[in-house]
Design a protein around this nucleic acid. Structure first.
Length: 139
DNA sequence: GCCAACGTTGGC
DNA sequence: GCCAACGTTGGC
C-alpha cells in the first residue's frame, strides 16, 4: 500500500466538506497538472493519503482513503484529465502544520517542502509514520 | 494581496 | 526544439 498527500484550499473545498460527503467520498477533480494526475493513476484502492489545507491553514488535518480508481474527471470533456475518489477516514487529533514539518529533520525531504506547487504527491512510509506521530493520530 | 516558482503554450 | 510570454499555485 502506498501513501499520498492531497492539497486543497479550505475556502474552496476543505476537510469538513469531505467529511460531510461520508463513506461514498468525493471525486478529487479539477487537477490539471500531469504530475499530479500521474500520481492519481498510480493509486490503488485502499491507499491512504494526508489531507492538507493550502493557502490558508497550512496544515495536515486528516487522513483519506482512495475509494475509486483513476477515472475520467467528470468536470471536463478533456480526456487528458483523470482523477480518483477519496473519502475521509479520520481527523488528526493535532493538525500538523507546515511549520512543524519544515522544522522536523526527518521530514526535510517531503515533497510538500521541496515542491510546494505539486497538489497530489507521494509520501514515504517513514514520512507517513512521523507525521501521524506528530499529529497523535493512528497511522 | 503580492510575487516567486513553476508549468504550459505557441511562435519561430 | 528552444525559449519568451503567459497563467496558476501557494507561502508569506
Amino acid at each position: 500500500m502506498a501513501y499520498w498527500l492531497f492539497k486543497s484550499e479550505p475556502d474552496v473545498f476543505g476537510w469538513d466538506d469531505l467529511v460531510a460527503k461520508g463513506d461514498s467520498g468525493e471525486e478529487w477533480d479539477g487537477i490539471r497538472n500531469y504530475q499530479a494526475r500521474n500520481n492519481m493513476r498510480l493509486m490503488a484502492l485502499g491507499d491512504l493519503g494526508f489531507f492538507y489545507h493550502s493557502r490558508s491553514g497550512l496544515e495536515i488535518v486528516g487522513i483519506v482513503e482512495v475509494c475509486a480508481l483513476s477515472h475520467p474527471d467528470s468536470t471536463t470533456n478533456d480526456e487528458r484529465w483523470d482523477c480518483v475518489d477519496v473519502r475521509a477516514v479520520r481527523s488528526f487529533k493535532m493538525p500538523v502544520s507546515l511549520d512543524q514539518i519544515k522544522k522536523s529533520p526527518e521530514l526535510s525531504d517531503m515533497v510538500l517542502v521541496k515542491n510546494s506547487r505539486l497538489s497530489v504527491q507521494p509520501v514515504t512510509d517513514a514520512e507517513w509514520a512521523k507525521v501521524c506521530e506528530m499529529g497523535q493520530t493512528k497511522p
